[in-house]
């Protein structure tokens, strides 16, 4: 935990007050106030270097050596999915999913989670036998098995090809509908944010520049014309106008 962050009393989901983080002289997060209600699917957009990963890492308590202040409260059970699957190459897939857990019951849950992400039958495989998409599914299973109240995802599909990406979008949304954790998905892909999230935040110069609720039914299609409007607003907030594209 960052040194200057006071712990608030445990709320239903994420609550940030005046969260500030800086590296050297550069202020990356400049007094962020944010509430994420339990079970909300939030996407966080921003340019590279806008501090979106810094925000996620702060919520995940992964920023020990970063200077900062502010109040931060997050649920007890938090899972993180990284951009790389981060599977330990020397543990079989099921053992990777069970990392940090033990007992027969956990194993049962691990098998269930693998089946849920479509990796049934691959429990005994080594991570380097998996494709990129499969590895990322295994990482999702690893985060699910702990029944998180909050799922933090740091560009989890950034390294996948376009087709695998679309499949993973559907999977993530299905999983969310079944388990209903709060989700904070960091991405630089506007379409990904619009298709998946119910609320999209744009991080700009260390502050939340736009907080947009996307009120369209799921499953959403990339071609939905009404989503186009949201898209334009988000791109404008990111400083990209249509003629630049």
């Amino acid at each position: 935990m960052a040194p200057h962050t006071e712990q608030l009393t445990r709320p239903a989901a994420v609550r940030l007050r005046g969260l500030t983080r800086s590296f050297e002289d550069r202020t990356v997060l400049d007094g962020i106030d944010l509430d994420i209600p339990a079970g909300q699917f939030v996407a966080l957009l921003g340019h590279s270097g806008s501090g979106k990963s810094t925000l996620l890492r702060a919520v995940a308590h992964l920023d020990h050596e970063v200077a900062g202040s502010g109040q931060l409260a997050a649920p007890e059970r938090v899972s993180v999915v990284f951009q790389d699957s981060r599977l330990l190459p020397w543990r079989r897939v099921l053992d990777n999913v069970l990392l940090g857990l033990d007992g027969k019951e956990a194993e049962h849950k691990g098998r269930e989670a693998l089946a849920e992400v479509g990796l049934k039958g691959r429990e005994r495989a080594w991570p380097n036998e998996l494709s990129g998409g499969e590895a990322q599914r295994a990482a999702l299973a690893r985060s699910l098995v702990r029944e998180p109240e909050l799922l933090l995802a740091d560009e989890p599909f950034g390294a996948l090809d376009a087709l695998t990406r679309i499949k993973m979008h559907t999977l993530l949304r299905e999983l969310w509908e079944r388990h209903r954790p709060s989700v904070l998905l960091v991405t630089h892909d506007v379409d990904e944010a619009i298709v998946l999230a119910d609320r999209v935040l744009v991080l700009d110069h260390g502050r939340i520049g736009l907080d947009l609720t996307i009120d369209r039914p799921h499953p959403r299609s990339y071609r939905d014309p009404l989503l186009g409007e949201y898209r334009e607003r988000l791109l404008a907030a990111l400083g990209v106008t249509e003629d630049h594209k």
């Binding site: 308590h61 992964l62 938090v78 990284f82 981060r86 330990l88 020397w90 543990r91 940090g100 702990r146």
Partner: peptide, 25 residues
Amino acid sequence: HRFVELAEVQGLSKVRFVRQIVIPG
């Protein structure tokens, strides 16, 4: 270092971290 982060996220104890990540690695 990425595996150190993973161990923190998964809530591994120091002993488990050494046994399951550092030594096999």
